[in-house]
Amino acid sequence: MAVWFGLTSGQWRARVSVAGGRRLLEATRSEDLRMQIRGALEFWPTHAAQHQHRIHQRPTRL
């Protein structure tokens, strides 16, 4: 996750990695951005990310 403040835009932004890919979140207040980050992470539970990873792994040969 990366969080930054745009001086020219006056916006807080965060790039959050979730199971479906990355999401860019924006807010005018840091508290609002924090709530958006929590919502994004709760929407994509960690077990979904692990399941997604297993699907795209190559099968192991015996």
Rank of each mutant, 00 (worst) to 15 (best):
R13H: 13
R58G: 13
I55L: 00
W44Y: 14
E42H: 09
Q57W: 04
W44H: 14
L62C: 01
I55F: 00
Q11D: 11
A49H: 01
D32C: 08
V16D: 07
L24F: 07
A19M: 07
A2Y: 10
A14T: 15
L62S: 02
T46H: 11
T8I: 05
V3N: 06
Q11F: 04
A27D: 01
R38M: 11
S17Q: 14
W12E: 03
S17G: 11
R38L: 09
L33I: 10
Q36M: 00
M1G: 13
G21F: 10
M35D: 09
R29P: 01
E42A: 08
L41Y: 09
V3H: 05
Q11S: 08
L33G: 12
A14Y: 15
E31R: 14
A14D: 14
L62Q: 02
M35Q: 10
L24I: 09
W44L: 06
A49P: 02
I55E: 00
H53V: 01
G6Y: 00
E31P: 05
H56L: 05
S30G: 12
G10I: 00
E42G: 04
E26T: 14
A19Y: 02
T46Q: 11
A2Q: 11
R58Y: 13
R15V: 15
F43K: 09
M35N: 09
R54A: 06
R38C: 08
L62F: 01
A14P: 15
A27K: 00
S30I: 13
G6C: 00
W12K: 04
M35A: 06
A48Q: 03
M1L: 13
V3M: 07
G20T: 07
